[in-house]
Nucleic acid binder design. Structure first.
Length: 194
DNA sequence: CTCTGGATTAGCT
DNA sequence: GCTAATCCAGAGC
């Protein structure tokens, strides 16, 4: 029944690989008896101590501790005084690597997402890292959630094959390591930027 | 303790 | 294109 749910081993691989393979997968959340789901279409990789743009660049702190956990957990952080962003932790414990979820194509629970976001076009529900957190009601309590559990998980898309074409670009909104092409996305009307 | 600026967004010019 | 909103992590003293 949940055979499409990604196993721990999916996350315990090189971060750039996981980032690209997350494209086309479905993020699912069970929220008050309704299922929220969205196809992952845009992500960014953050590579821990070796990456100046990563929260873990200067080592472990109270905020970034979940990045150091085993792959397959959710790292949620608060920023700009009002927004949350969600990352998928990758590799093994102690590595501090993660993939930022930047945009989703809504596939289930659209009405609930619309209520969470305020009346809005479907294209505007999940086309940004803070927007998708608002649509999925992901906040502080969800930091550290085990993606191999029963509330938030990622599964294979039963309707379509993995994307044929994966595009890359520098990461958005950072000022260091801008030469790295660690943003991965597929063609879609639901991207955070066109 | 104080200070700086941020993996963003919405709304305006 | 510009910037306010609004909190707090992390750095430096």
């Amino acid at each position: 029944m949940n055979s499409r749910r990604l196993p721990r081993s999916f996350y315990q691989r090189p971060t750039l690989t996981v980032a690209q393979e997350l494209l086309g997968k479905i993020l699912v959340r069970r929220w008050r008896n309704t299922l929220l789901a969205g196809k992952i279409i845009e992500v960014e990789a953050y590579l821990g101590e070796q990456d100046p743009a990563s929260h873990a660049y200067r080592g472990r702190t109270p905020r970034n501790q979940v990045m150091f956990w085993n792959g397959g957990h959710l790292y949620v952080y608060f920023t700009y005084g009002m927004h949350f962003c969600a990352n998928v932790v990758t590799e093994e414990e102690g590595r501090a690597r993660a993939v930022l979820l930047r945009a989703l194509e809504p596939v289930a629970g659209v009405e609930t997402m619309t209520r969470a976001r305020g009346s809005d076009l479907i294209e505007n529900l999940c086309n940004g890292p803070a927007k998708l957190c608002q649509a999925f009601r992901i906040g502080r309590p969800q930091n550290g959630t085990d993606l191999c559990g029963k509330t938030i998980w990622i599964e294979e898309d039963r309707h379509s094959a993995p994307p044929q074409i994966i595009r890359t670009s520098p990461r958005i909104g950072i000022t260091s390591a801008t030469h790295q092409q660690w943003r991965f996305f597929m063609n879609s009307p639901f991207l955070s930027r066109r």
